[in-house]
Design a protein around this nucleic acid. Structure first.
Lengths: 221, 221
DNA sequence: CCCTTCACCTGACAAATTGTCAATATGCAT
DNA sequence: ATGCATATTGACAATTTGTCAGGTGAAGGG
């Protein structure tokens, strides 16, 4: 097994800084070809995961759509799950940008919750189907611990941060467990938003209801 | 017993009636052999789904462990997902029994929530790993609507019932949306319990915290 | 300008898996 | 015992995955 070659895809970032000093475009010049292949693969994977879902998408389909050889897929990802998690990570990053923008406007706990939900809608409008494809419990995809955080875990961590902050600012009781709350909120939001989509619930009603419920949970008496 | 008979009838109805289908009541006498094969398959599937997880389990492994021919698997299930959903359904039934037993003792909303969590722990203690294996978002397993309810949906429906009842008894405000609440609660509980297991949180603390949060969400001010 | 080198890419291939089906076995009724 | 419908079997074709020996292209030295 050629460990070094296989691992290389992941450690792209690791080898770039070795080229320090010289010129900023050193990174660029070294693997422009490689980066381009990777970019095309991820773009194709994203399209197929959204259009067909995880299981109906084969590595060969991704390579084909990306316009690269079948073997190239395995030079960039160890397998389909690896590719999916990369896609999900990318989506997380994108949503986080939208989220931070919305949260800038929020002053209270309730507003923060609402803005989060609005951000989710905004992102979903701009990227139909992407969140649904990415926001998936990866527990089912592999038995082993993946070592890579799933989107759900990432969001739980983000919420934990926010709860910690609110607690420090005395917006919510001090006996609220931030880590647990972060997980509860993520679970409720993902299930609630999925429900709203499935049953075509009015957007503003859904957001108000979820926000109220979460606010109640956080400021429980 | 009525459970298995019902399931069998459903499965039979889906598969057998292609031909003239003489007498409908023949199910009982005719298929003792068939039922036995099915039972062995489901038992094997359960063991493997729990031990290895969904993806590491192959239909051929299930057949082999069940001691039946490979083709027999496909006479009882259309594919692995069908088999998994059957397993998950069975788990739901089992949990529901434990749940109903616990809920019999509960008088208030808060007690009901707590008893539910205790029931989950009790079932998990008696059946290690089974809930984790069954309580999975099946969205990732197939793109198409499965037409069969996932465990999560079933539980959401159960919670909806309970919320409706509480609302009728004026234990919670009348403007709470039962259907949405049912989904929020299921999302929060599954994520919260998974968190508690992962981080080895003290059982009673976890139950108290989750119960308090859910109670707050339901009786939001 | 050619040649060397090295990273990267390619697609044919072996291995593994899935779902099918014609042949076969089983058990029940007559 | 015989006929018949149902149930089972395992070999098989089709599909998919991951690997690898060889090919391609760009950067740099001669």
């Amino acid at each position: 097994m050629s460990d070094t070659t296989t691992k290389e895809a992941v450690s792209d970032a690791a080898r770039a800084p070795a080229e320090k000093a010289g010129s900023g475009d050193a990174t660029n010049g070294l693997s422009r070809r490689r980066l381009e292949s990777r970019r095309k693969l991820i773009a194709a994977a994203r399209q197929l995961f959204v259009e067909r879902g995880y299981h109906a998408t084969r590595p060969q389909d991704i390579s084909k759509l990306a316009g690269v050889g079948h073997g190239t897929f395995y030079l960039h990802f160890t397998d389909k799950l690896d590719c999916f998690l990369t896609f999900a990570d990318e989506v997380c990053d994108e949503l986080e940008v939208v989220l931070q923008d919305h949260l800038g406007r929020a002053r209270t706990v309730e507003e923060s919750v609402k803005e989060t939900l609005y951000a989710i809608y905004e992102y979903s409008d701009a990227n139909p189907g992407v969140l649904a494809a990415a926001m998936t419990n990866t527990a089912m995809l592999s038995v082993e611990e993946t070592k890579r955080r799933s989107p759900m875990e990432r969001w739980a961590a983000q919420w934990t941060e926010m709860v910690l902050q609110w607690r420090a600012e005395k917006d919510i009781p001090s006996d609220v467990d931030p880590l647990l709350s972060g997980h509860l909120i993520v679970g409720a939001i993902s299930q609630g938003m999925a429900y709203g989509y499935l049953y075509q619930v009015d957007r503003d009603k859904l957001i108000n209801d979820i926000a109220q419920a979460l606010f109640g949970a956080l400021t429980r008496q």
